[in-house]
Design a protein around this nucleic acid. Structure first.
Length: 417
RNA sequence: GUGAGUGUGGCCAAGUAGGUUAAGGCGCCAGGUUGUGGCCCUGGAGAUCAAGGGUUCGAAUCCCUUCACUCACCCCA
């Protein structure tokens, strides 16, 4: 039997309510923040991600789905949202419209990894990008935007961590010093850190190995290395966050996996014990547009993992409001009544009433059984007696009460609307 | 890529010092007389016990191989 490929899954009807409520709130909050929706293709030129994310990052090195199409073009299934948005920004000359540009998206991403809880080969992200403004009030806005969305769907116990990793002027010096420090500690490092030392130095600070914790605690702090501009940006951001009373935690060890990040980086996770994984992450990328061939342009954005939000909603047992609209089954007895059923069902649906014509193969009892097993609220019964008198029976399955009413559309609609 | 755990009908599962019809529950289908549901009763369909190979008179149960799923690491949403 065929199965969905590893790390992918079907979104079954019983889970669709989560997606519905998320989409609804994405639209609502995005409107409040005045961001406009954009959709980009699932495939992009493979090079976009090599240039954007960084050649030596794990994502590009071993997690992309890359293939040649029949025209020999090297394409990659989108592994993240920011680079494609920046590509679209440049392609459509958005720098020529009023700045900054505010865009949001809800799109699937693909990464070839081993699946586990909250990690899939196909996952969806709600993300937003603000391109063209370097002032930290936008950093604050982007963080608030992500935070507000997570709150709007009903999540609590959220935890915001922020950091500044400097820019291309001040970061290199920090990395050099950090490397130097770690080299002096090289015989006490775990094997992962030994590897990180050369190919992902900033990640050293994120090691969970208990033996490495003391080394980390004594490591140079990147916030001490910020140049004047970066420091001013950072401190102003903190003030803005205070203005809006958004609780944050400074984590000078917070780093991110993409090369394009500069200055502000942040993550939002849940304090609920079971899943410490990040639900949202993002940061500033002041060099990315230029890296992709555009003018020097600042930008900042976030990505929120839809599947992780849903996982956390279930985890926190957030109840999703149910659809409590009426749902009607029309039970017919005999051939002629079926024709009347078809007629009525069509009218009811045109009036916005959820209507199902009961299975004809079943007797009345079975049709009633059927109606209650699919949680319908009402049953309309039409048999010979009703046809003769031009009436029908309408039964409320919740109360069990039934009435005989004339077979007039307006009468039926009045009861069911 | 590395490590650990798990794989019995659509779902949850009993059964493992090998013994021959593989429990049970949910769900599904059908009945419980002629036109009334949710409860109850009865019956039915549905499993080559993840797959392949081996040991044995005999294997869901023992051995080997493969695959899948789950969790964790790396990394990330």
């Amino acid at each position: 039997m065929y199965k969905s490929p590893r790390g992918t899954s079907d979104i079954l009807p019983e889970n669709q309510m989560y997606w519905r409520i998320l989409n609804k709130n994405i639209e609502k909050i995005s409107l409040e923040f005045a961001y406009e929706r954009i959709d980009t293709p699932i495939i992009e030129d493979a090079n976009l991600f090599v240039r954007g994310i960084g050649e030596l990052t794990d994502i590009v090195e071993k997690e992309t789905y890359t293939f040649k199409d029949r025209g020999d073009n090297l394409l990659t299934l989108r592994p993240e949202g920011t680079a494609p948005i920046c590509r679209a920004y440049l392609q459509h000359g958005m720098q020529n419209s009023t700045q900054p540009t505010r865009l949001y998206y809800v799109l699937p991403n693909f990464r070839y990894e081993r699946p586990q809880s909250g990690r899939y080969r196909q996952h969806h992200q709600f993300g937003a990008e603000n391109i063209g403004e370097s002032d930290p009030y936008i950093d604050c806005e982007i963080i608030e935007y992500a935070w507000r969305f997570l709150q709007s769907v009903g999540l609590s116990m959220l935890n915001l961590e922020i950091n500044s990793i400097g820019d291309k002027k001040c970061r290199p010096k920090y990395i050099t010093d950090l490397k130097e420090y770690y080299n002096s500690q090289s015989n006490n490092l775990c094997k992962d850190c030994t590897r990180r030392l050369n190919n992902n130095t900033l990640r050293l600070l994120d090691c969970k190995n208990s033996d490495c914790q003391e080394i980390i605690s004594k490591a140079p702090n990147n916030l001490d290395y910020l140049c004047n501009e970066c420091k001013a940006h950072w401190q102003l951001l903190l003030l803005y966050l205070k203005d809006i009373k958004l609780p944050y935690k400074i984590n000078s060890r917070l780093v991110r996996g993409f090369d394009y990040y500069t200055r502000t980086v942040f993550e939002i996770s849940s304090k609920s014990n079971s899943s410490p994984i990040a639900i949202a992450g993002g940061g500033r990328y002041d060099g990315l547009i230029q890296e992709l061939g555009g003018p020097e342009t600042p930008g900042i954005g976030f990505g929120i993992g839809i599947e992780r939000v849903i996982l956390e909603l279930k985890n926190q047992k957030v109840s999703i409001p149910k659809n409590n609209k009426n749902k009607v089954v029309i039970a017919s007895i005999g051939v002629e009544s079926r024709h009347i059923s078809m007629h009525i069902s069509s009218i009811l649906r045109k009036n916005g009433i959820t209507t199902i014509v009961g299975p004809s193969s079943k007797n009345l009892r079975r049709q009633l059984k059927y109606a209650s097993s699919i949680n319908s609220t009402h049953v309309i019964i039409i048999g010979d007696e009703e046809i003769q008198k031009n009436t029908l029976i309408i039964k409320n399955l919740t109360s069990g009460v039934q009435n005989i009413i004339p077979n007039i559309s307006d009468e039926i609609i009045k009861i069911l609307k």
